[in-house]
């Protein structure tokens, strides 16, 4: 038994402690966001945030995550009430097949939490570990840029 905090909720999971987080999220907690892409830490399809840092969930055993704060795509919003990055991805129509997008959004989330006004180079560097095969890169960069603008505007309006 391992106790995890996933999207702010405490969850006790029965998978063996050596099980990579990805399989616990998908199989046991029935969350679709993190995807299996390579299982090797090479593509980022499985990226989630652990204490705000992006990690490859496919190679991170759950025993290392006891008590840590895990966030997945589901934690950022829903189709009805999308979070700022999700909304920007919808506005920019950023997907072809979309299989890579969950990982892209999670890594972008980490970036925007660290650097709220990223330049293009910041975005490209942050996303370098993430692969997309459809060639949606241009729109992914645009969506991240737009999310940063939307968030800045929202926080100004909130002031």
């Amino acid at each position: 038994m391992t106790t995890l905090t996933v999207n702010g909720i405490g969850r006790t999971v029965s998978s063996t402690p050596d099980t990579p987080l990805l399989y616990v999220l998908r199989d046991e907690l029935e969350l679709n966001g993190a995807k299996f892409g390579c299982g090797l830490g090479q593509c980022g399809a499985c990226a989630v945030l652990v204490d705000g840092e992006p990690v490859f969930s496919c190679i991170t055993p759950v025993m290392l995550l006891e008590g840590r704060d895990i966030r997945t795509l589901e934690g950022l919003g829903t189709a009805e009430a999308p979070g700022p990055l999700q909304a920007a991805f919808i506005e920019e129509q950023t997907a072809q097949c979309g299989y890579c997008i969950a990982g892209m959004i999670m890594r972008a989330q980490a970036l925007l939490e660290r650097i709220p006004h990223p330049g293009d180079d910041d975005i490209l560097t942050a996303l370098e570990p993430q692969l997309c095969r459809c060639g949606t890169h241009m729109r992914i960069v645009r969506a991240v840029r737009r999310a940063a603008q939307n968030m800045a505007r929202a926080s100004e309006a909130g002031r």
Binding site: L73, E74, I90, A95, G98
Partner: peptide, 15 residues
């Protein structure tokens, strides 16, 4: 707007 994108960016069952 594409009908399949909202589920894909929010973790819906899309695949």
């Amino acid at each position: 707007p594409r009908v399949d994108i909202p589920a894909k960016v929010t973790g819906g069952a899309a695949y």
